[in-house]
Amino acid sequence: MSNSMKSNMVSNQDKSSPIFHILMHLLIGILFGAGLAISEMANPNAVLSFLDVSAIFTQDSSFSKNASWNPDLIFVMVSAISVGVLAYAIKNKMTKPKFTSIWRLPSKLALDKPLIFGAILFGIGWGLAGYCPGPALTALVNNPMEGVYFLSSMLIGSFAFQAISTMRKT
């Protein structure tokens, strides 16, 4: 156990240079960010006009140019999840990740209160401004003022949760 823990850094069996891993991580981020940009999920108005579901019936969304409802987030989710399902099917045929020695997937199973309340809160904040954490990052380039306001307060919110839960434990 402790042995596998120690060997988990990218990676002792792997001979690739750190530069290679830096570039791979950069590439993963670039693909992800390009996905947010191309699908327009990087634009809060595209997200809000999806969440504004009454526009399906009334065709009067204040978030889109032509006032119609934007179904695109469904396409984004379904296609991303389809590739994701493929990824886990391939994973199940592998004994370990290519460059590290163990899988590090979340192990929690309980449907507990923090999960539910956290998701409710996240949904409220997402619906208020149209930013979830990924698009909030890309806003730093595409809409810098909004990105700075949102992202800095997001860090404070996260820190506040950490501080409160540490206080309650001690």
Partner: peptide
Amino acid sequence: SGVIGGVLIGFAALLYLLLYGRV
């Protein structure tokens, strides 16, 4: 463009999972 963007997002997740074992 939602489908193209979604495939890119999914592919980024696929690479991170299969190469580095993470979500």
